[in-house]
Amino acid sequence: MISIKEMADVPVKLTEGHRLCAGCAEPIIAKQVLLGTDKPVVVSNATGCFEVSTSGYPYNAWNVPWIHSAFENAAATISGVESAYRVLKRKGKVQDDIRFVAFAGDGATYDIGFQALSGAIERGHQFLFVCLNNEAYMNTGIQRSGATSKGAATTTCPSGTCIPGKREFPKDITKIIAAHDLPYAAQASPHNWKDLIEKSAKGFEANGPAFINVISPCPRGWRHESAMTIEIAKLAVETCLWPLYEFQDGKWKITGESKRIAEGTKEKRPIQDWIKSQGRFKHLLDPKWKNLADEFQENVDKKWEELIKLSKQ
């Protein structure tokens, strides 16, 4: 990997002037992902904050070819682009060695976009799919998704006097994607940029479908200060709520800070720290919902132990 100083000299693929909120993690993640290749790249984008904010006509924040067609089909759209590339290359009409990446939010990955993603992976297109996971439908105003944390308050699962936010745990999409037995899948966080860039590089060169699920703190939806974005992402990893790992050629490997926690050289922080850090969990601090906070911790521990077991196989 080139040094950060050299990276700062690389022409940017996503420019300033996009209209994402101050402190949004999405452009930070995209920047890091796109630093993972020095090949020409074509981007597909699902409908969502990232698409709306980087493309408002006539203001294009992209310095690379970019396509958005709809919400649920970023993977299908990029597989069409990649199919065209295969055939046009075969016919000698395209010479470049191009890489393909799709950016989608958690709704466009876990929920409405899942079918198209699963289909595209099964067909074996050569593309990297990046989930910008901010754990809710932020573009429409913070509604519950399949990625929303249990106990989190959103505008469709608010914390009321009877119901304390979302009642279900999120689905483990990274493992579901790994069950496709694809060449590469990983979880990452923008605070550990080296880890994320490395994973992106592996994804771009996987020679088949690759998937990276990236935690993407949302100051507006998670109710934290915009300056705290990177710290919150780090906290997700340090509590083992969002372990950094990769799945490559059928093997599970824990990476970054998560690796150090697994090896016992770094402390695993309690989930209470996570709960306290964001307004969306504020109600869980009420003694009335202590059982929920406990359940949260138990689930994190259970999933973490499972991952450690997988990494030892």
Binding site: E16, R19, Y57, Y59, N60
Partner: peptide, 24 residues
């Protein structure tokens, strides 16, 4: 900028959209 088909023909035009005024 005249309206053409819904494809932005030029890259990086968002630079012209200044977001500095959002800042406090």
């Amino acid at each position: 900028m005249p309206a053409r088909i819904s494809v932005i023909m030029k890259p990086g035009t968002a630079k012209e959209y200044e977001t500095g005024s959002w800042r406090s």
